[in-house]
């Protein structure tokens, strides 16, 4: 979410709270209105996607572009599976252990990764995501390329025994809301301000006493642990995991959620992006052959003409299309790019 504007009036804040409560109620009531298990499945996947997208935005808020969300998603899934199936722990005990394990892992690798600037960081996280997938595929006790099947459901809590998709939905919803709360608290504190400072101008942030490395490492660890949280859920929801499910494409899709929703909106953006990217392709059952081209074209159209994403474009509607044609004509005729940028 954007940093609180110092000029917000009480009325706006009140409207915001009303909207939040309405949305919350809607989210809670939603599964009761839906019959189709398939749609519930999509909802759940959208929630997972939203969480992963938010981890991307968390790192992006400090200027880091990561392609490693899939890596820690996988780590979470596999760790939880091993703890439950091999060590006999209950899902609820395995969960915090997985998070701690991932945090330590993220701290160790992050300490190395964050030392590398911009482009190098993108590449290294991409490579790391591949490493995780390959490691899982090579390790026999992790099931190799075939993966692990028959992962048990989370242990029953009271009357909830996770036989129905609705139970899973409430679990992931709870996780999502927890993530939203934590991230919002971070963004509105001086930690979030430090991240923003580092993102906007690392040079200036340094002269203000902000340790760029430490804050970025913090973002990396928090983001990675959050991704592992989603991974834990995923393993016990789909009840089987394969290395292929965590491949490089996943990280790119996670980025896409954030970009599509709106990069400036660290929480709402990925949520909206995930929902759109999960549901829309299902309703546009295009010929399988053309799907990557359509996705690519949509991606290009969004980036080139609506770089603010859905929320960004709603907030700042673009100038009239006349502008676009004028610059196009300009370029065609004079062959020169209208300057003022980079």
């Amino acid at each position: 979410m954007k940093l609180p504007n110092s000029l917000k009036t009480d009325r706006v804040t009140r409207y915001k709270w009303i909207a939040i409560i309405i949305v919350l109620i809607a989210l809670i009531v939603l599964p009761l209105c839906i019959e189709s298990n398939y749609i519930k499945h999509l909802l759940i996947m959208a929630c997972i996607g939203a969480i992963l997208g938010m981890t991307f935005s968390l790192l992006f808020s400090s200027g880091l572009i990561t392609l490693g969300a899939a890596a820690f998603y996988a780590v979470g899934a596999y760790s939880s599976t091993v703890l439950v199936m091999n060590a006999g722990l209950s899902f609820w005990a395995a969960l915090p252990l997985t998070l701690v394990f991932t945090a330590i892992l993220a701290l160790g690798f992050g300490a190395v990764f964050v030392r590398n600037a911009g482009v190098a960081f993108v590449i290294i996280t991409l490579i790391f995501a591949q490493v995780v997938v390959l490691a899982a595929a090579q390790a026999d006790f992790l099931g190799g390329w075939g993966g692990i099947m028959g992962i048990p459901r989370p242990n029953p809590v009271g009357t909830v025994n996770f036989a129905a998709k609705t139970d899973y939905y409430y679990l992931i919803l709870a996780m999502l809301l927890l993530v939203v709360l934590i991230y919002n608290a971070l963004y509105s504190s001086r930690i979030g301000r430090a991240w923003r400072a580092i993102k906007l101008s690392p040079k200036l942030a340094g002269t203000l006493g902000i340790n760029e490395y430490r804050y970025r490492l913090l973002a990396f660890v928090i983001g990675s642990t959050t991704a592992a949280l989603a991974g834990c859920f995923y393993a016990h929801y789909s009840q089987n995991i394969t290395p292929g499910a965590f491949g490089g494409w996943l990280s790119i899709y996670v980025q896409l959620y954030a970009v599509l929703g709106g990069l400036e909106f660290y929480i709402l953006g990925p949520a909206i992006g995930a929902v759109v990217m999960t549901f829309v392709p299902e309703y546009l059952r295009i010929v399988k052959e053309w799907e990557p081209i359509i996705t690519g074209v949509i991606l290009l159209v969004v980036i080139l003409f609506f770089p603010g994403g859905i929320l960004g474009t709603l907030k700042n509607p673009p100038a009239l299309s006349l502008n676009k044609f004028h610059s196009l004509y300009n370029r065609l005729v004079t062959g020169k790019k209208r300057d003022s940028n980079s």
Partner: peptide
């Protein structure tokens, strides 16, 4: 991301 879109196409 734009280059990724290009790659897909």
């Amino acid at each position: 991301m734009a280059s990724v879109g290009l790659m897909m196409i």
